[in-house]
Simulated scan of single mutants.
Amino acid sequence: MKKSLLTLALIVVSTVAFSQIKIKPGVRAGANFSNLTNTNLDDKTDLYIGAFAEIKFVKFYALQPEINYSRQGGKSTISGLDDLEIQYLGVALANKFYPIKAIGLHAILGPAINIKVGDNYDDLEGFDFLFFGGLGYDFPFGLGIEARYNIGVVDIFGSNVNNTNGNNNVDDLLLNKVVQIGATYKFDF
């Protein structure tokens, strides 16, 4: 009898708790303005696209797992030298904070890991771990706009990953840095 009551109580609590959670799938796309730290490269303009599932636990917080495709790199300043192009497929975990519940303004923070799926240069590191932050606004009809800044922590040649002697001067690292400006759309099923 006690087991039956406990099981029933857990089912009721779970049902009430999960009924408050709202999950909305969506898509995101926009422009990348990318470059590398500690180089003379100019900003390279390209694109990103992705899909996500926004899991809204409470009115002021949502967790948003994402899968993104991003084209990054830098534009050469030397005539006749090719631009650096790196393509990544990544998984991000965006934390969205809504400070004013009556409007769709939100802050976005989180980590991501990018796996290199293509480039035009030899010997580039096959992954990048990064952190991002930004601001966004969600309109009531599903459309949203956002701006993010991504900074990688893995040197594109892997010198801070493969270096065993501990000489990792941040002024020598070539890290991805990307400003993303784009739009999102959440589906309401």
Rank of each mutant, 00 (worst) to 15 (best):
G134H: 07
G90T: 02
T77C: 01
A9D: 07
L109K: 00
F132E: 00
L63Q: 10
P65T: 09
N168P: 12
A147V: 15
K101S: 11
E125G: 07
A102R: 02
S70T: 14
T39F: 02
N32P: 02
I108W: 01
N169Q: 08
F131L: 13
V91R: 01
G152Y: 01
N35V: 10
L41N: 13
Y137W: 11
G182K: 05
N176Q: 06
A92I: 03
S79N: 14
V91F: 09
D43L: 09
G30Y: 03
L173V: 04
Y185F: 15
N40L: 07
K59T: 13
N95T: 11
K3D: 15
G133A: 13
L5K: 15
D83M: 10
G110K: 00
G152A: 04
R28I: 15
N165W: 09
I86P: 02
S14T: 07
T15M: 15
K56F: 05
F60W: 13
D119G: 09
G136Q: 00
G104F: 05
G118T: 02
Y137F: 10
L105P: 08
V161I: 14
T7K: 15
A62V: 05
Q72W: 10
Q87P: 01
K59I: 03
K3S: 15
L105H: 12
G50C: 08
N95L: 03
P99H: 08
I151A: 06
Y121E: 14
I108L: 01
D82M: 08
T39W: 05
Y88S: 03
I49Y: 13
Y88V: 02
L84V: 02
L135R: 03
L5A: 14
Q72E: 15
V91M: 05
K101I: 04
A31M: 13
N163F: 06
G136S: 06
G110V: 04
T37C: 07
G110I: 10
A17E: 11
N167P: 04
K44N: 14
D42A: 13
G50F: 06
F131T: 14
V178M: 04
D188T: 07
L109Y: 12
F33L: 07
V16N: 12
L109N: 00
F33R: 00
T37F: 02
V170S: 15
N35A: 12
V16S: 12
K3G: 13
P65K: 09
G144E: 05
V117A: 09
V154G: 05
N163C: 08
L93P: 01
